[in-house]
Write a protein that binds this DNA or RNA. Structure first.
Lengths: 243, 243
DNA sequence: GAGTGGTCTAGACCACAGA
DNA sequence: CTGTGGTCTAGACCACTCT
């Protein structure tokens, strides 16, 4: 049952509408890729004008939660390679060109008990399992990223038996495990390459590597992936832009 | 003379209004900190409704170009320490806390002919001067960032004679040289500390440092500062968030 | 042609800041 | 009290997509 009110203590109507839409996406009423009702229909259902609904939708489009197509409708955002490239991958080569890794060498994918650090990063309670992935991602046909990933086994049950993991995992999370990554917090630092990393990336032990420590969250803000990417810094840079 | 039209080949009205406002900020009609005319007045002057003006203003607020204060008015954004902290400084300590450097040890500030790399980064033509700044910025009372900055001498004439450079330079650029930094592109990598850097930061030569290579631009997109910050990666991380 | 989002208008009332 | 931005409405027309 829907009950939105003019504007008592609940705050602005369009904020209430935003929350309602987010809730429906979170609870699966509107799955990724689904088409929302039209602005006028939503307005009628919620007892708001089309303009107010529009403001709510505009905000959510700005949050990368919805996508609009003129003449077609408004859709729940999905994880395409495009989105991965624009929002979650920031390495560029000397020419400043961005390209997703097309090949990954899988070193390990298994399930085991979570370490203290892992339970901490993934915000899960002590005796729990994680699925871990270790792989070397290639850029321009050369090994460039040594990557370790930890996932809560509760949400990703059976992933360790998956064969042929794709390079872009977020689409897999979404399609096969119903987990949509919405936000990623990254902490970057410089580290010295370990023997294993140096060997895998073809450079001397102790070489400086760019470490990207990422925690990826769902729409609700729950951390669901902890990823450490150690990147060969000779050939690639991490690009960001701020306004 | 203002002439905005309904919507011929010029595109949507609110886009034309945005452009007009940006132009007036660029040409100095509305200086940083200035109060714009009210929405209704702007609408009357431009022959548009208040709602349309509002949409233009909303967009520009989203671009960090304007700031609104309910009941007071709409203002051109300025470079406060707050903005510097939120938009242009991304280092955090182990606790994840962000704090601007409060002390900098100035090593050099002088004027000389630009190198090829500098003319390239700053997009200036060959025989030109730059003002360079070299300094060590301190975080938590410890040397943490070895920083070199190159500025086109044409825009920053006399800066090399400035005594007592502030830690946050962007406010100085804006107030004393009429240069407002609007956007910064950063390329991050891991490098090995040189002798000079190691000495200044109190760590062994060859230690991995996080290098931030930043080119800062004006509203018009002209590069006006090239800055390389080499950061002690043991104690600090570069924090970003993506949605 | 029917339905969608994109733009624009005109007018209303509320919340807040400052004289 | 006046003027500002913040929210909300109702209705109009345009541009686009699909059938």
């Amino acid at each position: 049952m829907v009950s939105l009110t003019a504007q008592p203590g609940n705050g602005p109507l369009y904020q209430q509408i935003k929350k309602l839409i987010v809730d429906r996406i979170v609870d699966g009423t509107w799955q990724p890729g689904a088409c929302l009702p039209s602005e006028t229909r939503l307005g009628d259902e919620l007892g708001a004008s089309q303009g107010t609904v529009r403001k709510a939708l505009d905000d959510l489009v700005g949050d990368n939660l919805l996508i609009r197509h003129q003449g077609r409708g408004t859709f729940v955002a999905t994880h395409t390679a495009q989105r991965e490239l624009f929002h979650f991958f920031h390495l560029v080569d000397e020419g400043g060109n961005k390209q997703l890794p097309v090949y990954s060498q899988l070193i390990d994918c298994s399930r085991r008990q979570a370490s203290d650090r892992e339970t901490d990063c993934l915000d899960i309670s002590a005796p729990a399992d994680v699925v871990t992935i270790t792989r070397v991602r290639h850029l321009n046909d050369k090994p460039a990223i040594f990557e370790t990933i930890a996932l809560p086994a509760s949400r990703f049950s059976g992933l360790e038996r998956e064969d042929d993991l794709p390079n872009e995992l977020y689409g897999l999370y979404e399609k096969s495990y119903g987990v949509t990554i919405h936000r990623a917090k990254e902490r970057l630092s410089a580290v010295a390459a370990t023997d294993a990393e140096a060997l895998a990336l073809g450079l001397p032990t102790g070489s400086p590597l760019l470490e990207i420590d990422r925690i990826a969250e769902t729409l609700e803000g729950t951390p669901v992936e902890w990823r450490i990417s150690r990147c060969d810094s000779r050939t690639h840079r991490y690009l960001t832009e701020h306004v």
